[in-house]
Design a protein around this nucleic acid. Sequence first.
DNA 1: ATAATTTATACAAAAATTAGACAAACACAG
DNA 2: CTGTGTTTGTCTAATTTTTGTATAAATTAT
Lengths: 314, 314
Amino acid sequence: MNEAQYPIQLVARLTGLSAHVIRIWEQRYRAVEPQRTATRRRLYSQRDIERLNLLREVTHAGHSIGQVAQLPMAQLQKLVAASLNLQGRATHAVGETPAPSSFLDECVAAIKSLDGHALDDALKRAATALGALGLLQRVVAPLTQTLGELWREGTLTSAHEHFATATIRVFLGNLAKPFGAVDDAPVLIVATPAGQVHELGALLVGAIAANLGWQVTYLGTSLPAAEIAGAARQTRARAVALSLVYPEDDPRLEGELTLLRASLPGEVKLLVGGRAMAAYREALEKLGALPIGNLAQLGSTLDLLRKPKSKARQ
Amino acid sequence: MNEAQYPIQLVARLTGLSAHVIRIWEQRYRAVEPQRTATRRRLYSQRDIERLNLLREVTHAGHSIGQVAQLPMAQLQKLVAASLNLQGRATHAVGETPAPSSFLDECVAAIKSLDGHALDDALKRAATALGALGLLQRVVAPLTQTLGELWREGTLTSAHEHFATATIRVFLGNLAKPFGAVDDAPVLIVATPAGQVHELGALLVGAIAANLGWQVTYLGTSLPAAEIAGAARQTRARAVALSLVYPEDDPRLEGELTLLRASLPGEVKLLVGGRAMAAYREALEKLGALPIGNLAQLGSTLDLLRKPKSKARQ
DNA sequence: ATAATTTATACAAAAATTAGACAAACACAG
DNA sequence: CTGTGTTTGTCTAATTTTTGTATAAATTAT
């Protein structure tokens, strides 16, 4: 564990605190007490840096440094999580990444025991540790898959699934409105078409898009094509994103998709993703829909769509 | 258990009270007496904050601070629950009277134009102006009715309804976790039975119950009786609340309700409310379900059920 | 030598404290 | 309805505490 290698200037850059503040916090409150070289130079460890990051968060949230400086890490994390209740802000942590899978396990355990508070708590901590996008890619996305598997094998009932959806929904909903209204942000409609009842994929898309600067209008699940198209026209959306997950063999879905494409203005792009997407690939190709195979692809596709018009408009 | 570290400024933000008021309430009525630092700075605990939140609700409902400031928490919660009765009364303390209907209009307008940001904003302002419970009974509850009417008369499409549900859902979800887990709080399961697809009523119940000190496990819509009963057993719930709104003539629903009652432990109470409740009244009576005709009734019923186990808690 | 760190000290802005004053709203007796 | 005293939220002012930032001299790294 002798990994204390970071000089103060670098720590300052990594934490966003000035070297002055870091020293004074140590001198006055013993907030962190780094190792020293033989000549009394400070050498900070990863843990020290993480602690400083937490302290920055907590003080930024309104706590006084003098009161929180000596609290143990767990307590600090709790305070940060509590402060997230009001302002869903995502912060990118440094290079720690404390076992991303453990967050997943925590979430699964909380869902199994129907403990909403524990689930919310785990998600919050994951959000602070991994940042918004990291949370989505490394916890929520795998979680939806895991839930599907556990459900198929009978470990979880649909009550668990509903419960998890309800809790995660609120969490992602908060994540999806990080920025103040940017009026010139392009609008994205997110929904699942009629017959598709799984919601988490759509929520995921909405949250990611919002974090990429889109103005997301989230419509929820199982919506007829005409409704989606109507909403797109009304909001002058630039694109519509659909998530297809569960019924992989719905004969009516192709008709819905065709109708949707026909009802949408030509310049409105249609993004389609989700586990069940592959089953409808031919139909989607015919319609010129953009297939989204994974979250990375979603990000790059959204970025592509974001540029064209905002340039022309400026 | 050294959990007192919130400085007054932060508490002011969290409770919506000014620091002035918080201090004067302490000086005049000893409403809350926070810990002090060695230099006489106030340090509030989460419990203190919770108490201040309750006091804000109660005074906002029209009680005078001098009369309620010293009441124990349980009593305050009871008053808050009872304040749901004062639905008709419009005016109370201080010259606010911010025309509660205007909030409603704002919300409806935002929903019509599918503007999630505006809707969220209106709800937020209503929440600070009216308090959590005031928001629920004077904005959200009427809103669900208004939406139903507009939908029936064709002004709104189901896209609007989905959109509104999704946004309000997130908002109510946040409202439903007022503060730290109180471990001895009774558990309430909230859901709609299979076939019932309207969610807002259930969300409303969940949010209100959470604000009255229940630990709410929210399961969402259209859940089979066996699943609901399973969740109730697993969480050792004290009661199950169902919301019935849309299909008023579902022949299977009676069977679902009977099955649910039979699958639940005898001591678990069954609360049923919602616009469609009347249509199933006979069946409900036979099952010994507690009918919830309005929000006031919900408050008093929850308060009654709350007592048996927990008695005195500061 | 130049740049970075360390320690100690100083300083100023922000935040919190107490005490007191004041006006609007309210309750109630006449 | 009016007048009176009480309640309650807001405000000011003077003081103390907290906290971030700056300065200076000595020491160390490159």
